[in-house]
Design a protein around this nucleic acid. Structure first.
Lengths: 109, 109
DNA sequence: CGAATAGTACGATATTGATCACACTATTCA
DNA sequence: TGAATAGTGTGATCAATATCGTACTATTCG
């Protein structure tokens, strides 16, 4: 056992384009993941209740991580991820909150 | 000449998903168009200085219109478009402003 | 009318990316 | 050590979509 603070590679948000973050948030499944992470602060891949295969969840978390939206740490067998909410707020003020606060359309699908 | 208020079909923003708007804003060319429209309030297809073919500009404006981001009116031979900024602010408070206020990354491309 | 202009529509192409199944690694625990 | 579990990586497939060139429509103006 070592100290449990290993974190998967992630970009410095100062180097991230807003278009990259927008693209990361534009996918419905990823948006659901982001909303879930906002509720629980941290979650593993398996605990996320999204209607896709496990490898697809892994793919989406990878995409979110590369866009600077989430941070993933290594904890035993699991890789809990969390939103980089504070850093995103500093880099793109109001963006994440606006997305999280968005209400569903009138005619829900 | 008739009264100059013909407007191309556009969605009611109440029926638009935030993911749709995010996807519309995620493309670099469209983001450039949106930033340009924010500067000039209204612009024609040809006046937009984006590095793509005219038909591609038309395609992108169509996409932005269907996502509820811009409104296009018919004026003679031209079709000036404008941001639906106020309506977007009402539907997704803070979203458009956050995107427009976003600064370039440290290592500019 | 005829020429020029603004924009759109369409077809073709190429690229991206969302998804799954499966194999693989790393870790925990009996 | 062996079994079970969490997650990742790879390859395949399929659907979107960004782009261009060309043709077309509508409008203005000589």
């Amino acid at each position: 056992m070592n100290e449990s603070s290993a974190v998967l590679p992630q970009p410095d948000l100062e180097d991230v384009e807003v278009a990259t973050v927008l693209a990361a948030l534009a996918d419905p499944v990823r948006l659901k993941i982001v909303r879930a992470l906002n509720q629980v602060d941290e979650s593993t891949c398996a605990a996320l209740e999204v209607p896709v295969n496990a490898s697809t969840v892994s793919h989406h978390l990878h995409a979110l991580r590369e866009a600077g939206v989430v941070q993933t740490r290594v904890a035993g067998r699991t890789r809990p991820s969390r939103l980089r909410a504070a850093e995103l707020q500093k880099r793109f003020p109001g963006l994440l909150s606006a997305v999280l606060d968005a209400t569903p359309p009138r005619h829900a699908t």
